[in-house]
Write a protein that binds this DNA or RNA. Sequence first.
DNA 1: AGGATGGGTGGATGATTGTCAAACCATCCC
DNA 2: GGGATGGTTTGACAATCATCCACCCATCCT
Lengths: 108, 108
Amino acid sequence: MTDDERLPQPATADLDLVTVLHALGDPVRMRLLLSYADGAEHSCAPRDLGLEHLHKSTVSHHMRVLREAGVTTTRVAGRNRFVRLRRTDLDTRFPGLLDALLAAAPTQ
Amino acid sequence: MTDDERLPQPATADLDLVTVLHALGDPVRMRLLLSYADGAEHSCAPRDLGLEHLHKSTVSHHMRVLREAGVTTTRVAGRNRFVRLRRTDLDTRFPGLLDALLAAAPTQ
DNA sequence: AGGATGGGTGGATGATTGTCAAACCATCCC
DNA sequence: GGGATGGTTTGACAATCATCCACCCATCCT
């Protein structure tokens, strides 16, 4: 069944700049952001991200930080979770920030 | 004497996005960034910044983090240090980032 | 010279944080 | 039912970090 359910996340109006910057001020999470930049939904498996050296639970932790900061949203479907960048929310709250970040981030 | 001397700081080409974001992912340092946003030189005394509750050395520490991340530059003149935002360097390396940050940051 | 001033250094301490490991939980499939 | 699968939770541990304190170092001024 498509028991669409979203994991808790801050409302758009509650997005805090310092919290977002703190969340992105980590190489692993920046890496995740880049992989989410395509706007598509991603499963949690860190494939082809250069994150294979990290433990499952470590990646899970980083994804939680991103979600709690409001950078990503997570949809639960069955035993899978699909993570997607909250692009429009971020653009609404912090116009131009995401574009600048993605443009400045190390390509690939 | 105008013994102009600059404290060590990373070269423009060496500015690292994650390092900059990490430096700005702290409320005190974000506060400092905002006060530097006018482009002028500032002495180190945290006047009228809502930072009076912090110890001298704590503020000194935060300013060091900003400088080592490449966000600010510090000129030593006598017993004073003058801190200024490295706006053009940041704009060169991360186009649009600073504008987006300053626009999104809590107004004062 | 000697005090006041602007500011940094080094150590100590408590709080966060990144990481792993092991156990756990729900779902899907045979 | 019973594995396998995708992912989270909890605990432990080391590293980093924010903060304070006491002291230090130049410089400026009288």
